[in-house]
Structures are given as structure tokens and as C-alpha cells.
Write a protein that binds this DNA or RNA. Sequence first.
DNA 1: GCCGATTTGTCCGTATGTATC
DNA 2: CGATACATACGGACAAATCGG
Lengths: 253, 253
Amino acid sequence: MFEQGGVFTPRQKFAHIYSVLKKRIESGEYPVGQLLPSENTLIVEFSCSRNTVRRAISELVREGYVQTRQGWGVCNIFQPIEPSSYTMGVIESFRETSNRTGQKTATRVVRFEPCIADRKISVQTGFAVGTELFYLQRIHDVNGIPLIFNHSYLLKECMPQLTRKIAEGSLYEYLEGTLHMTIITSKRTITVEMATQLDFEWLEMGSYNCLAVVSNQVYNSDGVLFEYTQSRHHPQIFRFQDNAIRRSHNTKE
Amino acid sequence: MFEQGGVFTPRQKFAHIYSVLKKRIESGEYPVGQLLPSENTLIVEFSCSRNTVRRAISELVREGYVQTRQGWGVCNIFQPIEPSSYTMGVIESFRETSNRTGQKTATRVVRFEPCIADRKISVQTGFAVGTELFYLQRIHDVNGIPLIFNHSYLLKECMPQLTRKIAEGSLYEYLEGTLHMTIITSKRTITVEMATQLDFEWLEMGSYNCLAVVSNQVYNSDGVLFEYTQSRHHPQIFRFQDNAIRRSHNTKE
DNA sequence: GCCGATTTGTCCGTATGTATC
DNA sequence: CGATACATACGGACAAATCGG
């Protein structure tokens, strides 16, 4: 690890190049709407192979910073955008998100009980019928206002010692820090649902009668589904961003 | 192009391997929760390079079919899921989506007029102040019920001949088919908003007072922003899917 | 319309690092 | 410790798209 022009060099070369290019784009060093230096130019600058440059660029494509076109080049399409509560393709805990967006938050556990997956739970969560689980209800306060209601089902086998107290803190800190679990994949579905009795009871719904609902299946490093969480967000604090790329129509076979 | 086991071989090798593996996973040929054959095994089977196999696998990772772990392998985490109206990272027109999900749909243009971007429009859409645009309001009916309200701003310069009649059909068919424009990148933001007077007038809101709002900036192959569309969806037909991967914390620099 | 230079897209083979078992 | 697995990186080759002369 050494420093170079104010930018720390990470272990991986492609990540370094990615981060340098990203900073240049954000700072306006490359004009918007115009081409970045060609791959060959970047190869010389970073003294690396073509694959490495291309990998860095493909990350920027995924994030909507640039787009590429064969025979033409890599075009800067950056536009500054307000920080989103959810960012596509990235897993973050509630605490991490609030730190990033700079808001004061708190978590309350309003229900904590063991349970066993029946057919209804199984269909909703993806756990097999009969699986031993913990069921949690948690309220997240943002700047003192209750705005998120979470229903979670957690695989008991992975965290037999889990207590209500632990769940009051950051669940992910416990799982990753204390239990040394590694979270790899998370499958999310976003819908909009009518507020329920519980939502009205616990959240400051104002005149809204719907919520943004994020249903989340989380897998650990063994490929085991160990968490299902349904997060019910007050509309005013919900925002999700995504960058899409139009794929060629012949790819489907 | 030749056939092989019922699977058409596309031009690109990695896409072929991707599609074969995908079919095997969907059909249960690889047991869920277990490892796929190693990269070296697949290299032999498909007689290709390591990079090509890895590229196919990384697509499957992105789609939530498998997850990988260094030193261990590629683990099958497939779970069948209902078709979503929006699928992450893919651009589709309304017509394409409804064809895919098998619903009868229609589009009505309820407003069509030229306009010039003022400051308010500029902030919302990303077009520079003074840009000449078309402003459209369109209703999408699904199975005869009006459920989506679209506000669109289109760059006049790119489609000076656009008429109300054309907009009644598929806009994307016109842009891609007739004008030979290529759409590459689309930046989307999803929020939930209170229904407006217009929404209540035109859509079957029932007892809902909110909608799922997808704000969309679309760039053509020259890197020019040429479309901003705000799609306001009735909650009952809105669903969006995303697969997230937990990144290592040292990547941010 | 053609040709050649440039640029990105695809694919190959190899080497080395690092995590897992 | 060694064998196996994925992760990173290099360098080279050719294809396909773009653009200017």
C-alpha cells in the first residue's frame, strides 16, 4: 500500500485504475459528452495490460459513468446525482447507509421470537417448511422519526446465540464481526404495497397509505439462504437507483 | 449458426456457454446449494479458454443464479421467481415487457406538444435550459385497465419529424427501426410518490393514494441524453428485481 | 464506395496469487 | 503441507465498427 497523487493504491490494479478514472470524471477532468483517452493510451499511462484497463472501464459502465461503443470509444456520460438510499447492485446494512447519507438513526426491536417455517412462511421467504428460524420486527428511526418497519426471518442454525439485545445493535456487525459469516449475494424485489394496521401503528405515515417494500433474500458464503427481510419504507425516504444497458436482441438464443 | 442439443449457438462463445449453463441450472441438472463443475472442467467441456468460462459465470452471478468463492467453487443458488415487470440492468420498452409477461396492452397519447426546457424542467430531466423538446403524456392500459401514466421529454433535434400518431405506436420501434438510433445506457431512479390530480383522473387508482415512480434518463450511442421519462405505475402492477453483491470494504480507497 | 488507421469486442494461452480443504 | 479452486494480470491475435481521406 503506497500513496500516489492523493490516491491510495489498493491491492488490485484494476480497482486502482477504476478509482483514478472515476475521480477524474467526477472532478470534470474529462469533459462530459466527450471521449475518454483510448484504451491504448491508458495502457501506457498505467503501464498495465489491456484487460486490466477494460475491467476498470466496465465497472464505470455499470455505474453509469461512461458508455462504450465499438470503433468509437469510451464516452463520458457522468451526471452528478443525489445520494440514494439504495444503490443498485450493492449490499449495505441500514447503519452503513445512514452513515453514508449522514443521518441520525436508531433501531428498536419490537418483537423477537423463535418460529418454525410453515407453508405460508416458506413460500414468502424461500426457507424450507419446518426450518427453525428467528422472527424479528424492527423499527428504524431516521432523525427521530419512525419510518421503516422490518420483518426478518433468520436461520437459527447460523446464529443459535442470537438475542434481542444483539438485534438492537447492528445485526450485520454481529454476523460478520463476531460470527465471521460472509455475506455474498442478496436478491431484492421492490414493490409498493398498501400500509397495514401494523404500519399505521408504528410508523409516521402522515396521509400516505402505501409503502415501498423491499423483500430481501440473503445468502452466506456457503450458498445457504440465511436471512429473509421485508423492509417497509415510508415513501418519503425511499429511493433506488439503477443503470441499465440495452443488450443486443440476439443474445437470448 | 448451428444447433447443438436444442440450443442455438450465438455468435459469441461466452454467450453460448452462459446460456447452456443457465438452462442446466433452471432445469435442475445442477443441484441447488451445491457446486457447479470447476472452471477447468468447463474449459474441457466447451473447449475454450478460462476467460471465456469465467465471463459466462460472471453473468450468472449478476443474475443471482450462482455465487462464487475463491478456493471453493461456483455454488448454485437458483430459485425460480415470478417474472418481474422490471428486471435490473436491462432496458425494455413497455411493449417488450408486456409481450414477455404476456399481457394485452395499449397506449394512448393524451398530450403532445413542443416545449422548451426552462430551469425547472432542466433540473428534473437533465436537459440544458433552452433545449427544444417534445412533451408527451401517455396512458398505458394493461388488460384494458389504465394503470401507467407517462410523462416524457424527448430531444427534438433527434426526432424532428415525430408526430402524435407515431407516439401512439411503439416509440422505441420508431427510434430504433426507422431512425436507426441505438440506445445504450439508461439511468433509472425508483421512488414512491403521492398520486396527483392527473393520476386520479386518468388511472384506476382504487383506494391507493400512491404510485411507483420510475424516472428514466436515456442516452443514445453518441452519449447524448435524448429522453427523460417519468413512469407512474399503479402499485399493483409494479415490481422490480435486483441482485446485489457484497463488495469488499477496501475497494473504496 | 473503398481503403486504411483507430478503437472497442472477443478469445486464446500462460503465469502467479490467494483462499479452501 | 499439497492439491484444488477461483482471482488477478499479462501479452498477443483477430474480428467488427467507426471515421477520415
